[in-house]
Amino acid sequence: METAANRARPFLEADKVSVAFHGKAAVDEISLTVTAGEVVSIIGPSGSGKSTFLRCINHLQVPTSGTISVDGVSVVDRPGQHPKAKDLARLRRKVGMVFQSFNLFPHLTALENVTLAQVHAMGRNKSDAEERGRELLAQVGLADRANHRPSQCSGGQQQRIAIARALALDPKVVLFDEPTSALDPELGADVLKVMRDLANSGMTMIVVTHEMHFAEDVGDRVVFIADGKVVEQGNPAEVLRHPQHERTQRFLKAVLDR
């Protein structure tokens, strides 16, 4: 239920989230607030902690410290607390995720990939789930692939199936972790188009990406992360064209020179 109180507060709020691996900080006190419908692009050098931070949002990665709340749900109020299965399930119903390597279920057809969690995580009945599944596959341009296994689909098609799968639980926000970096540019274009449509439909999105065009054209905000910290953020055109920090300038120069 959307209430006035909910709308007034930021939809997603990460507060001083840190993650340490073997005592070394991969994410170092990142705070981020996202409003409903916003599309936030996260950019930054390899190993800067982008994926790790993103994975904290749906609790695939447990933060060492800091708190995260999504649409009023926070699974842990204090660091180190073991989340309740019920809260975790509630969080993951609200948050969809798309992985760099797709992570489709290879033994299931495209349609089964998209319906499985609807039935077993949401409790939808099978025929409703299939109807919704076919609708979503059509939405990503793959109605004709419903009965194919992932291995019978191109990389770009697989990633679009993965997007349909993430959308099947009617999430409030979708996280993308470099959704096109495993794809040839041509195949990636189909995926980016689906993401653009999704953004235009008002979906809240957080996208870790190296696609600067996408970040500038589709994104509402760019967040630059280096060494586990937010270095700079703001309007995409400003951050990408007139970066203020030396670290951002160096990174963007390296990306554009490539």
Partner: peptide, 10 residues
Amino acid sequence: AEAAAALGLG
């Protein structure tokens, strides 16, 4: 397993 967890499967 990660994809399954992200989809909220128990």
